[in-house]
Design a protein around this nucleic acid. Structure first.
Lengths: 182, 182
DNA sequence: CAATATACGGAGACAGTCTCCGTTTGGCAA
DNA sequence: TTGCCAAACGGAGACTGTCTCCGTATATTG
């Protein structure tokens, strides 16, 4: 890739990160181009669709997911506490910006989605938590990590749309936890 | 209201019902006006926003909600079966068209929403189911009907976005049921 | 059968998406 | 260093959808 192309690509990602954080997933892409100081054509050449741009933004975020899972898994015993902590972490990770939870959750399990790799990262992280709980025989029965992500992602999406705070989300996560734990 | 205004209003609702069913919640409003055979101005005068139009469309739908709750409540015993049947019914009711579940669920508990009355209808119906189960001491602890609607609505929204079928939704509803039942 | 309040229509302002193509430029070979 | 050209750029503008404004039409009333 030519040096100027590389530079513009990075500028666009940085600008998009800013704009999406400020204005949510629906922000204008021309605004992103403007903020990056490039023409609209340049934006669309690098990122043919909004989703592809999203995917690029989330590059660094993948590492955060795995770190978060590591951190949760050091807990000993107390399956319910561990699971709830993971759920809350998950909601936080997925709520990168307005509209994020719905976007990510609906791509969950769809390998042809532009953000499929992000979903796989999340699924792998949840799978580690599930495995740990299964090893402790803490689960009622096996549950697919993808299903669990959809449930928790659904809650995150609702909370995102309706501007619910942590306190309102907690009891919903508890219901899900109680629904899967033995 | 003048007779022609009344007539146009009805035509618009009928057209909107058609267009939204065909193209989902994001369909063009000018298309609705065109299909109704009126100018855009007429549409926006009657329905200042998409949400208000939505609300009008769902008028008849309110009755269906109450009927559905009645039908579920005739079941005797078998709390889990009853609850699951209600959940599935709820998902069906809320999935009036693409984007509906997310729209309705995020308005849940927001009295200033244009579709607040619809949400209240749904909440009242769920409340009846919850009361019945509480009378039978079938619930783990009290749960707010609104919270339950958000959980189930979250699943419905995910299913709607990701085009999941009934079979994929069922296990998620089971998790929620198990989470609230004693 | 006026007179008038009420409602209508659709042109057009505005905003966002995305493409096309003339212009510029980075990088390489001579 | 210079010249070449594939690669990349920019931004005008086509297109689509939202929503408003105001000149025109008509239902209603006395």
């Amino acid at each position: 890739m030519r040096a100027d192309a590389q530079r513009n690509r990075e500028r666009l990602i940085e600008a998009a990160r800013e704009v999406f954080r400020e204005q949510g997933y629906d922000a204008s892409l021309d605004e992103v181009a403007k903020r990056a100081g490039v023409g609209a054509g340049t934006l669309y050449r690098h990122f043919p669709s909004r989703d592809v741009l999203m995917d690029a933004i989330m590059q660094s975020w993948v590492d955060r997911v795995n770190d978060a899972a590591d951190k949760v898994l050091v807990r000993e015993g107390d399956a319910r506490g561990l699971l709830l902590e993971w759920f809350e972490t998950y909601v936080g990770l997925v709520s990168v910006h307005k509209g994020g939870p719905a976007k990510i959750t609906s791509a969950m399990g769809d390998d042809s989605s532009p953000i499929a790799t992000k979903c796989q990262t999340l699924t792998a992280a949840t799978a580690r938590v599930v495995e740990r709980l299964e090893a402790e025989h803490a689960l009622k029965e096996h549950i697919e990590p993808v299903q669990l992500n959809r449930l928790v992602g659904g809650v995150a999406a609702v909370a995102d749309n309706a501007d619910l705070d942590r306190a309102a989300v907690r009891p919903m996560l508890e219901v899900i936890a109680d629904g899967v734990l033995a």
